[in-house]
Design a protein around this nucleic acid. Sequence first.
DNA 1: CAGTGGTCTAGACCACGTA
DNA 2: ACGTGGTCTAGACCACTGT
Lengths: 245, 245
Amino acid sequence: MDKPAPQALYRQAKDFVQGKLVSGEWKPGDLIPSENRLVLELGMSRMTVNRALRELTDEGRLLRVSGVGTFVAESKPQSNLLHITNIADEILARGHRYRCQVLHLARESASMPIASALSLTTGASVFHLLCVHYEDDVAVQLEDRYVNPQTVPEFLQQPFGDQLQSARYLLQIIQPDEMEHIVEASHPSADELKHLQIDPGEPCLVLMRRTWNSGRVVTYVRLVHPSSRYRLGSRLPVTGAYRDS
Amino acid sequence: MDKPAPQALYRQAKDFVQGKLVSGEWKPGDLIPSENRLVLELGMSRMTVNRALRELTDEGRLLRVSGVGTFVAESKPQSNLLHITNIADEILARGHRYRCQVLHLARESASMPIASALSLTTGASVFHLLCVHYEDDVAVQLEDRYVNPQTVPEFLQQPFGDQLQSARYLLQIIQPDEMEHIVEASHPSADELKHLQIDPGEPCLVLMRRTWNSGRVVTYVRLVHPSSRYRLGSRLPVTGAYRDS
DNA sequence: CAGTGGTCTAGACCACGTA
DNA sequence: ACGTGGTCTAGACCACTGT
């Protein structure tokens, strides 16, 4: 029958539903078509549609009631609080001088951990950007970014520097529909020490971020900050009640 | 063709694998049996086994490499940044043993920084809790919490310990309507070193959180985690488009 | 009762990595 | 060539809900 899809079928089903959600055609509380209806509309088997709807439910976008139907979940709790900040804007907003030094920008072969982070095969071609962000000539962030060439093929040609930041460029090209943040404290490597011009022994705050679009990883970035020069914070209203424990 | 299972089959498959993981029979890095082997061992169809393994992979417990096999993931504990998590639940969910040691629980006079954090006057009466949370007898979090007596007057009378965590108690009493998170990397103080039983020089990830209810600060807590034993993370759908910049 | 989601099966084709 | 995971199908049975 049907086999070769550029994207998995269940992915296409997810994208179809997500499209209805983001376009507002299906609003929170709405009853959406049943599995069998979607099977007819999309021409897939029920198991495939079921997987798509189940995953969207696990992600909190849908609410399913057995024997009744599938509904659009109510407004997501705290979503864009950890928004993707552009460090240049932060620095300029503080009234300081911003500067960016690009150390490396090239196409590379993905090592195992990088391939894993981007959900690509080891050795696949990836774009790699390494740069340092300065606030009044003090290094505050080392950016070590990998980009999936399938999603942003023009990345290498961009004139990154003081005027164009990679985060801003990527946001203009690709709207992420999912993101992941991981924060940890660590001792910087020798190279990181040198690039950030800090003393050995100073701990660093490391923020790792991945963003997705249509199920594909767009970019994986590791942001290293000297702890004496940077903190990460958010303050936000709590919309809904806390569920579960 | 009949399967009157008290639990879903894919659930049983997940439990089977998780049992091997928590018992230590399958250790991080190990190659576990292939789908087809598990099909034979458990007497289920491949789709069912596949779902179990896929969900465990999504949960970060397994690592699958197409064409190679399924491996036990290296476990790096990771908690959600955006929710007020109860560390006891996190630890139990990982299938580990939880223990809590209360070091200090008393009414105190607020020092300047504490009064400032709670929006009280210096010298005002506050509740102070200091405790250490253990995962399998390894200290993973030092909790240094101050509570506003005006919002939670019964705090001191609670039997905090292995069975009752301060975070759970507070959530039951007061629904926060706003919260603030600040994350930084730092070197632990001498006391913190001792309580967490870590080597000098190991950086710590410090999460400071304040919660509000009706405009009043409910609690201010400083959570210190050895970087080798804890990370913070979140993964979530992105609802709207990114504006800003 | 008919419709819903929840689950399960026995096969199948594919791309990939290893030998 | 072979085994691996990744996906897909066309059916099926179930518990549940509403009419």
